[in-house]
């Protein structure tokens, strides 16, 4: 079946699904822009985006809420894409940057850079990426033959993640960060994120996203047996490394902005698969729907965090609770993920 035929095959029409998800994400953006200490109506908030009238409300929308909204959308997209890439590369349905240790390693790299090396944006993201690569390598060394048991790779990732998270906490405590800062950062979220974080983040996110979509034909091949991929002229190992690197870069840049948020990369691709059914085999479509789900999940988690927890609970808390429950439901219902 060609890609076009699959796209047309039954279920929710793709155009409807995509526009629905985009609408949900945009509604989250609207809500996030209008909720806050300075109350603004939905239409006013959108108006301030185009027109700065110098009022306090305009300042909070343009300088406080807009960068935060952009960061949430970008982090959601980056984590979802990273998770989708990890799931494809490892052929492991439980794949997630948080659960494979990548986010923990990136957090360690970022914390080390902030406390010891430099506060410059480029250095922060680069050391995050270095930490992510280190953690991913360790996870694969510990897990050994990763195709055999999905649980083993993830447990190896959890071990690596716990180690790096503990090391990050130790680094931050020893550098005299306040405990409050530490826990807010370790749990992940968007409190006080502004244009500085967005400027640091967007080039990496955009580059990673373009790379991920450009890789979609190769990713499609990686879902087959390696021998079959080889018969179609694809060096599976090389493309695995390339796609894995892109996923590390995406996850690490997201961690540099928002801290180690887990489960988005697990939940978004699964929701996309659930909605697309057989059509998730069309790689670009699956990536696209996963990205939208990631954006929607993170922007709404941040909006809920601000609306119901008066901004005290970071978005990462809500994502961990919901994503973790989704993970347990999957483990419980799907017998084929036996450890």
């Amino acid at each position: 079946m060609s890609a076009e035929n699959v796209v047309r095959a039954g279920g929710v029409p793709v155009a409807l699904l995509i526009s629905l998800l985009a609408a949900i994400a945009l509604a989250g953006v609207g809500a996030s822009l209008s909720i806050g200490a300075v109350g603004t109506s939905f239409t006013d908030a959108l108006g301030y985006l185009w027109h700065d009238d110098g009022s306090n409300a305009a300042f909070s929308v343009r300088e406080l809420r807009l960068p935060r909204v952009l960061c949430a959308l970008g982090v959601g997209a980056a984590l979802a894409l990273s998770g989708a890439l990890i799931q494809t590369v490892t052929r492991n349905p439980l794949g997630d940057p948080g659960l494979t240790g990548v986010s923990g390693g990136a957090a360690f790299g970022v914390a080390l850079c902030l406390t010891l090396l430099s506060q410059s944006a480029g250095a922060i993201v680069l050391s995050g990426i270095a930490g992510g690569f280190l953690a991913a390598t360790l996870t694969f060394l510990i897990a050994g033959r990763p195709n055999l048991q999905p649980s083993r790779l993830i447990l190896a990732g959890v071990a690596v993640s716990i180690f790096f998270i503990a090391a990050t906490s130790a680094v931050m405590i020893l550098s005299r960060s306040s405990m409050q800062t530490l826990y807010y950062w370790m749990i992940g979220g968007f409190i006080n994120r502004d244009w500085v974080e967005w400027v640091m983040f967007w080039p990496w996110a955009v580059a990673g996203t373009i790379a991920a979509f450009a890789l979609s034909p190769a990713l499609r091949m990686l879902t087959f047996e390696d021998s079959m991929a080889a018969s179609m002229g694809l060096n599976a190992t090389r493309w695995r490394l390339v796609a894995g690197s892109v996923s590390v870069i995406l996850a690490a840049s997201a961690v540099a902005v928002a801290g180690p948020i887990a489960f988005v990369g697990f939940v978004a691709p699964h929701l996309a698969r659930l909605c697309l059914g057989a059509r998730h085999a069309v790689m670009w479509l699956w990536l696209c729907v996963s990205t939208l789900f990631g954006m929607a999940v993170v922007i709404w988690a941040d909006t809920i965090a601000r609306a119901f927890f008066s901004g005290r609970a970071p978005a990462g808390v809500i994502i961990t609770i919901i994503g973790g429950i989704a993970f347990l439901v999957l483990m419980r219902s799907a017998r084929r993920f036996k450890g």
């Binding site: 439980l94 048991q149 649980s151 993830i154 447990l155 959890v158 887990a262 483990m331 450890g339």
Partner: peptide, 13 residues
């Protein structure tokens, strides 16, 4: 492995 993995994730939640 499954038992431990579920324990770890429940602990996170």
């Amino acid at each position: 492995l499954r038992l431990v993995l579920i324990g770890v994730v429940l602990a996170a939640v």
